[in-house]
Design a protein around this nucleic acid. Structure first.
Length: 961
DNA sequence: ACCGCCGGGTGCC
DNA sequence: ACCGCCGGGTGCC
C-alpha cells in the first residue's frame, strides 16, 4: 500500500534543507496514502472501545511533524519499512510524520491493525516538547466480537489494555477516548430522539445573512431578488475571503485547530466554496450563474466579450441531438448554437470578429497596456501582456488562449516563490490564476434547465462560452475545455470518463459545481471517486436536501469540499461521525458548527428581517370528496369484502408480511376501483391454489411487479421513503436497491428481509425498471366509459375554463393508465393538453415542458403528469392548479409535486385539489398520511422502531380490520 | 538522551 | 580482569 519512496526518513544525513525540501514533496504522497488508507476503513458506527494503552513515539528528531498538547495523531502501518515490517508510523493530522511507535509495541499492534481487529487511535497528552520520544495514549476501537482477541493478542506480548479508569482522557475538550466512559460524565449523551431531532434540524436556521447583498455583474441580465443577492454575496465571500475554516484560531504565530489540537505555521487551507442548500425554487441556478459571471479572479467579474448584435445570449455548443436546443424556442438562439458548434472544433476562429471589451478594466494588471488587442489571436483575451510583471499573467494569458498551462504554472510558481513562503496576503496566493472554467456536474434531467437558465439570465449581448460535455462526439480536448467559461456535464459522463484518461480530471478548474449534490452519496461508488478526484480551486455543492439519511452522507460533501482534516475518513470518523452516532452532544455541536460554516440554507418559509424571503403566492389545498355511483359502489364493495376476507385471514394466520405482495395487490385494486373501473388489469392475479411454495413465490413476485408497474408510489421499509430503484426480493418485498444492498452489506451472509426475516441474497433480487409502461391495451376509445372521479375532474376543469381560460392545470395520478383514460374526455371537451410520464425520453421531456411552459395563447392548458415522473427540478410554474386524482402513500411525494408549480416564478395563487372517494381505502390512506405527518411534526422522525407492526397496523386500518 | 546501551579503556587504596 | 567501573559515542523504524 505504501510506496517505498517514503523511506526518505531512513536516510541519515539529515541535512535540514534538503530534508525539508523532500519532505514537502513526500508529504503530498504521504497524506494521499493516509487518505487512501482511511477511505477504505469501515465506518465508525458500532465500534466499541476495547481499552487504552500508554505507548511511546520514538524517532521524533527525524521528522518535522509536530504535535501539541492533547493533539490527536494518526497511526499508519508501514509494512514496507525496510527495518521493521511491523513498523507503525505516527502522523499528525496533516499527514506529517511525527515518528514511529516503539518497536516492541509496534510488533503487537501490527497484527491487530493488519487483520483489522481494531482501529488504533492516538492522542498525545504530554511530552510534546521532547525531542526524541514522547508518550502517547492509544485507544483501541473495534467490533465487540474482536475485543477479546485483541486484548489477548496484546497481552501475549506484554501489553495490557486498560479498560477501567478515565485517566486516559486529557483535559482537552475533544474528550477523545472518553465518550465510552459516559458514567464519568465526561460526555453528555443524547437520547436517540434528541439526536434525530437535532440532526434533522442541522440545516435549519443557518442563514444569518450578515453578508449583506451583492450586486451581480452587468452580464447577468436578470435582476436578482434580495435573497439571491445575499446568496451571491455569501458565495463570493466564501470564494474570496480569507476567514479561517471552522475550529481554527490564531494563536500567536500559529494557527490552531481546537478540535484536533493540531497547529501549523501556515494558514490552513480554507474551503473556497461550500454548500448552497436553499429550498428548491429559490434560484440556486441563477445565483450560481451570477457567481460565475461576477466573481472571477480577484473578485472581478468574468471577462466576457460583448457582441454588437444582440441575438444570442449563452450559446451552448451542443451536439446536434442535444435535447433542448433542437426545437429551441428562439430561432436566434438556434442559429448561434449551430455556428458555435461548428466553431468548436477549430476554436477561437470566430473570436476576432467581435469586439473585445475589458470588463475588469480596473484590474491592476491591466495597467501594463491598455491598447486594444495585439493581433487577432490576442484579441481573444482581455490582457495584453507586453511587460507582464509576473509570470502567472503570462500563464493566465496562455491558458486563456486555450492552452492548458497547468503543469507549466506549477513549475514556474515553484521557482518564483519558495514553497515554504508564509504569504500573509492570502487572498489569491494559492490560486492558479490561469484557471478560467467552471465545471458543472448535474443529473441528466437538469441539464436542459441549466442551458435554459444560462440563456435566460445571461444578457443577450454577452458571449459566454458554455459547452455541454455530453454525447459520443463530445470534445475531449483539454485545451478546448479549459478555454470555455463553463463546461456542463453529467455525473454519468464523468464516471464513464474516469480512469479512462478523462480530460475532466486533467484540468485544474476554476470552480467545480455539483448540482443536486446529494446524489453523490456512497463513497464506494465509482461516481463518488470520480467526483472527489476532480481538481478545482473553488468547490460548490448545490442541493435542496443536503442530508438524506444520516451523518454518514455528509462525509462525501465535506470530502468534496476538501474541508481539512475531515476529508480524510479517519478524522471524520474520530472527530465527528462516531461521537455523533454515539450520542455525544459535543460531537453534534461540532458537526453543527461545521455545517453552519459552509452552508447557506433558506427555505421558502424563511424570513429575513421579519419579511418573507420570497413573496410566494398563496397555496390552498383542499380535498374534494367524490361519491361513487351506485354500480361503482357495488363493484367496489364486492372487491373490498373479498380483499378484506383475504387480508383478515392473513392477519389471523399471522402471515400478512409473508403475503405482503398480495396485500399490496388487493389494496391497489381497491384504489383503482376508486379511480376508474378500466384501470383494473385484465390479467387475473388470483392466487388460486398455489401448488408449490415456489409457485406461490413466483405469483407473489408477479403481483408485486404488477403493483409497481401500475405506477403506485410504494414505500421502502428501510428508508421509509418512496422506493427508488426498486428491487423485489425472493420473498416478494420491495426495497430501494441501495437500501437493501446496505442491509445485505451489514448483515453479511445472514442477511434477512427486514419485513419477513427470510434470507435474502443479492443475486436473487429482481430488478424493476424505473418506470415501465404497461402495454396500452383495452383503451379503445369507442368503449370508453366515465367514472365518478373523471366526472369530478371534468367538472372542475370546465368550471375553471369558464372562469379564466388562461389558467393551466396539472392533473396528477400514480396510475399512468388513468392518465390515458383521462385523455379521451379532455379531447372531447376540446382541452389542449400534454402528457408527462416516466417513459418520455430526455429529449421529449424538455420538449413537453417547454411546450407547457410557453405562454403561447393556443398552448396546452393541461398537463397529465404521472406522480413519480421527472423527479426534482421540474419547473412547471405555468400551472397554478393541481389536481391529485388519487392519494399517495407518501405525503412528501405529493408535496414535491406541488412544489413544481408552487415555486419561484409562480405568479398566481396555487390551488391544489385532492380527489378522495368517500368511504373508501383512499379516505383511510389520507388518515394514515396525516398521522405520519403529525408524527413527523411532533417528534421529528421519532420513527417507529418496529416498522413491521406499524405497517401491519396501517394495513388493518386501511381495511378497517 | 539530565536516559540506556554498547564497547573500549582500564584496573589497589 | 574469563570481572566491574569509568566515560565517550551514540541513539526510530
Amino acid at each position: 500500500m505504501f510506496p517505498g519512496r517514503w523511506r526518505f526518513g531512513s536516510d541519515r544525513h539529515g541535512e535540514v534543507d534538503l530534508f525539508t525540501d523532500r519532505y514537502d514533496l513526500s508529504a503530498e504522497t504521504l497524506s494521499q496514502a493516509i487518505r487512501a488508507a482511511a477511505s477504505e476503513e469501515p465506518d465508525a458506527d458500532g465500534s466499541v472501545l476495547f481499552g487504552h494503552l500508554q505507548g511511546t513515539v520514538v524517532g521524533l528528531r527525524y521528522y518535522s511533524g509536530v504535535v501539541n498538547q492533547g493533539e490527536m495523531v494518526g497511526l499508519v502501518r508501514q509494512p514496507q519499512n525496510q527495518y521493521d515490517r511491523n513498523a507503525v508510523m505516527v502522523a499528525n493530522i496533516y499527514g506529517n510524520q511525527v515518528g514511529h511507535i516503539k518497536r516492541e509495541l509496534a510488533a503487537a499492534m501490527a497484527h491487530v491493525m493488519d487483520n483489522n481487529l481494531a482501529k488504533v487511535e492516538g492522542v498525545v497528552h504530554s511530552g510534546t516538547k521532547n525531542s526524541f520520544t514522547m508518550p502517547l495514549m492509544l485507544s483501541f476501537w473495534g467490533k465487540e466480537e474482536n475485543q477479546n482477541t485483541v486484548k489477548e493478542n496484546m497481552a501475549r506480548r506484554g501489553f495490557k489494555l486498560n479498560t477501567g479508569g478515565g485517566k486516559a482522557t486529557g483535559a482537552n475538550q475533544n474528550s477523545q477516548g472518553a465518550r465510552a466512559l459516559s458514567k464519568k460524565g465526561v460526555t453528555i449523551l443524547l437520547t436517540p430522539d434528541e439526536l434525530k431531532n437535532a440532526f434533522d434540524n442541522l440545516f435549519d436556521g443557518l442563514m444569518e445573512s450578515e453578508d449583506g447583498e451583492k450586486q451581480a455583474a452587468e452580464a447577468v441580465g436578470t435582476p436578482l431578488l434580495p435573497h439571491q443577492k445575499q446568496a451571491l454575496s455569501w458565495m463570493c465571500a466564501r470564494e474570496n475571503k480569507s476567514a479561517l475554516p471552522p475550529f481554527w484560531e490564531r494563536r500567536g504565530e500559529l494557527y490552531y485547530n481546537r478540535l484536533t489540537c493540531f497547529s501549523a505555521k501556515e494558514i490552513p487551507e480554507r474551503v473556497r466554496g461550500g454548500i448552497l442548500a436553499d429550498d428548491m425554487g429559490l434560484g440556486k441556478t441563477l445565483t450560481t450563474i451570477a457567481l460565475i459571471l461576477t466573481n472571477f479572479h480577484k473578485g472581478k467579474p468574468l471577462p466576457v466579450e460583448k457582441c454588437e448584435e444582440p441575438p444570442s445570449p449563452a450559446k451552448a455548443k451542443t451536439k446536434p441531438e442535444k435535447p433542448s436546443r433542437v426545437e429551441g424556442s428562439s430561432s436566434a438562439g438556434d442559429g448561434a448554437g449551430v455556428t458555435d458548434a461548428a466553431a468548436a472544433g477549430s476554436k477561437h476562429t470566430n473570436i476576432s470578429q467581435v469586439e473585445v471589451i475589458c470588463v475588469d478594466s480596473a484590474d491592476e494588471v491591466d495597467k501594463s497596456d491598455k491598447s486594444t488587442g495585439k493581433g487577432k489571436k490576442k484579441a481573444a483575451k482581455r490582457k495584453p501582456v507586453k511587460e507582464a510583471p509576473k509570470c502567472f499573467e503570462d500563464l493566465d494569458f496562455a491558458a486563456a488562449l486555450g492552452g492548458s498551462a497547468a503543469p507549466t504554472s506549477l513549475k514556474k510558481k515553484k521557482t518564483a516563490t519558495p514553497t515554504t513562503s508564509v504569504d500573509s496576503s492570502i487572498t489569491e496566493s494559492a490560486d492558479d490564476l490561469s484557471a478560467r472554467t467552471t465545471l458543472i456536474l448535474c443529473p441528466l434531467s437538469v441539464i436542459s434547465n441549466w442551458l435554459d437558465q444560462f440563456e435566460q439570465h445571461v444578457r443577450a449581448n454577452v458571449k459566454l462560452n458554455v459547452y455541454l460535455y455530453y454525447g459520443a462526439e463530445r470534445n475531449r480536448s483539454k485545451a478546448f475545455l479549459s478555454s470555455q467559461d463553463v463546461v456542463i456535464t453529467t455525473y454519468n459522463v464523468l464516471s464513464a470518463d474516469f480512469g479512462n484518461k478523462s480530460p475532466l480530471h486533467g484540468i485544474n478548474w476554476l470552480r467545480v459545481v455539483l448540482d443536486e449534490g446529494h446524489v453523490v452519496r456512497n463513497p464506494q461508488a465509482q461516481m463518488s471517486k470520480a467526483v472527489l478526484d476532480l481538481k478545482g480551486q473553488r468547490r460548490w455543492i448545490l442541493s435542496g436536501t443536503p442530508i438524506q439519511n444520516s451523518v454518514k452522507d455528509l462525509w462525501m460533501l465535506l470530502a468534496f469540499l476538501r474541508l481539512k482534516p475531515f476529508d480524510a475518513r479517519e478524522w471524520w470518523n474520530r472527530v465527528i461521525q462516531r461521537p455523533v452516532t454515539q450520542g455525544d452532544r459535543a460531537g453534534l455541536q461540532n458537526l453543527q458548527t461545521l455545517v453552519k460554516c459552509i452552508t447557506l440554507r433558506r427555505t421558502k418559509g424563511s424570513e429575513v428581517n421579519g419579511r418573507p424571503l420570497v413573496a410566494m403566492p398563496e397555496k390552498t389545498v383542499c380535498v374534494e370528496q367524490v361519491e361513487l355511483s351506485q354500480s361503482e359502489r357495488e363493484e367496489y364493495e364486492l372487491a373490498r369484502n373479498e380483499g378484506r376476507n383475504t387480508i383478515g385471514r392473513y392477519v389471523t394466520e399471522g402471515t400478512v408480511l409473508r403475503n405482503y405482495a398480495d396485500v399490496l395487490a388487493i389494496l391497489i385494486r381497491l384504489r383503482q376501483h376508486c379511480c376508474h373501473p378500466d384501470l383494473l388489469s385484465k390479467t387475473s392475479l388470483d392466487l388460486g391454489a398455489a401448488a408449490t411454495p415456489a409457485e406461490m413465490r413466483e405469483r407473489l413476485i408477479e403481483k408485486l411487479r404488477f403493483v409497481l408497474a401500475s405506477g403506485s408510489d410504494e414505500e421502502c421499509s428501510v428508508c421509509l421513503d418512496s422506493v427508488r430503484l426498486p428491487v423485489i426480493t425472493h420473498c416478494a418485498h420491495v426495497y430501494c436497491r441501495p437500501c437493501i444492498a446496505q442491509v445485505i452489506g451489514t448483515e453479511q451472509e445472514t442477511a434477512r428481509c427486514p419485513l419477513c426475516r427470510s434470507e435474502i441474497k443479492t443475486n436473487e433480487l429482481v430488478e424493476f425498471p424505473q418506470e415501465e409502461m404497461e402495454e396500452e391495451k383495452n383503451t379503445n376509445p369507442d368503449k370508453w366509459r366515465t367514472s365518478s372521479k373523471v366526472q369530478a375532474l371534468m367538472g372542475n376543469l370546465l368550471r375553471l375554463r369558464c372562469e379564466d381560460s388562461s389558467i393551466k392545470c396539472l392533473v396528477v395520478s400514480q396510475f399512468t393508465r388513468f392518465l390515458t383514460i383521462l385523455e379521451t374526455p379532455l379531447r372531447e371537451h376540446g382541452f389542449s393538453f400534454v402528457r408527462f410520464d416516466g417513459t418520455l425520453s430526455q429529449k421529449k421531456r424538455t420538449q413537453v415542458i417547454q411546450e407547457f411552459q410557453s405562454p403561447a395563447a393556443d398552448g396546452p392548458v393541461i398537463m397529465l403528469l404521472s406522480l413519480k415522473a421527472g423527479g426534482v427540478g421540474l419547473n412547471l410554474t405555468a400551472a397554478s392548479h393541481v389536481y391529485f386524482m388519487d392519494p399517495a402513500w407518501n405525503p412528501a411525494t405529493e408535496e414535491q409535486c406541488i412544489d413544481r408549480c408552487h415555486r419561484l416564478g409562480q405568479t398566481r395563487n396555487v390551488f391544489v385539489t385532492k380527489f378522495i372517494v368517500k368511504g373508501s381505502v383512499e379516505e383511510n390512506m389520507v388518515k394514515i398520511q396525516k398521522q405520519k405527518q403529525d408524527l413527523v411534526e411532533k417528534a421529528f422522525g421519532c420513527r417507529n422502531p418496529d416498522r413491521k407492526t406499524s405497517r401491519m397496523d396501517e394495513i388493518k386500518a386501511l381495511m378497517e380490520l
